[in-house]
Design a protein around this nucleic acid. Structure first.
Lengths: 118, 118
DNA sequence: TCCATATTTCAATAATCCTTGAATCGTTGA
DNA sequence: TCAACGATTCAAGGATTATTGAAATATGGA
């Protein structure tokens, strides 16, 4: 993830409806969710949700695939991970020890690491 | 960090000049950097840099303190860490294993953890 | 006090982004 | 082929955000 992509991802997440959509899609998991269902879950008009879905796709945070009449959207976990990585590199730049507390949070993603440390 | 703060932080980072400012301040470390120096480092007019510094402060990502004639800005590492945490919680929601690769990046912040694992 | 320095504030313009509803497109089943 | 469904596109508007340069504020030294 380069700066250009990061800027685009930050812009995508800096909007309440879009952040909500991303959370809904993350919870939906790898199977994703149809656009209409996203609209329902977020209580936003189909046209408006479509606008934001497109914006999120443009930023690389989600992807789409057609399935019969529906269009299924899926969270792009790699992109989310890339953004986190980008932020951490900024955070640590020149001061590795300063944001060490953040590492503790990483535990939520790596239960195995947690175990090894006990 | 709640959703409101996260939205504000994402908006703050979704602008090239501001992202650049944050990076400069992160590299500057806990001692921070005077507004004028930030303007110089980023090649942005003082008035414009002041506008963006205010925006970043409003979002909680940086803080200021006056020091004689200068106003020193400092990156708020806690806020950056909080934002990373917020992202990771979203990322992991319902799918702890999916973003495990991100945990590897955390190593950059926690050399001690690295050691223990070897 | 007066001047120079460091920075912010302000007003105006320009640019970008969001929302809405109507029209359109692609898909499926009768 | 036609109608219905799920979704996108488009144009218009309203709202927010960025940039600029000039004026204002605060501080420290002569």
């Amino acid at each position: 993830m380069d700066q250009r992509q990061a800027l685009s991802a930050f812009a995508a997440l800096a909007q309440e409806t879009r952040l909500q959509i991303v959370r809904v899609l993350v919870v939906a998991g790898p199977d994703g969710m149809a656009a209409g269902m996203v609209a329902e879950k977020t209580a936003v008009s189909p046209s408006n949700v479509s606008f934001h879905l497109k914006e999120l796709e443009r930023s690389g945070l989600i992807s789409q695939k057609r399935e019969s009449r529906s269009i299924i959207y899926t969270a792009n976990y790699n992109a989310l991970g890339g953004l986190i990585r980008f932020l951490m590199e900024d955070c640590c730049a020149g001061n590795p020890e300063i944001c060490a507390p953040v590492a503790a949070v990483a535990a939520c993603c790596a239960p195995k690491v947690e175990e090894k440390l006990q």
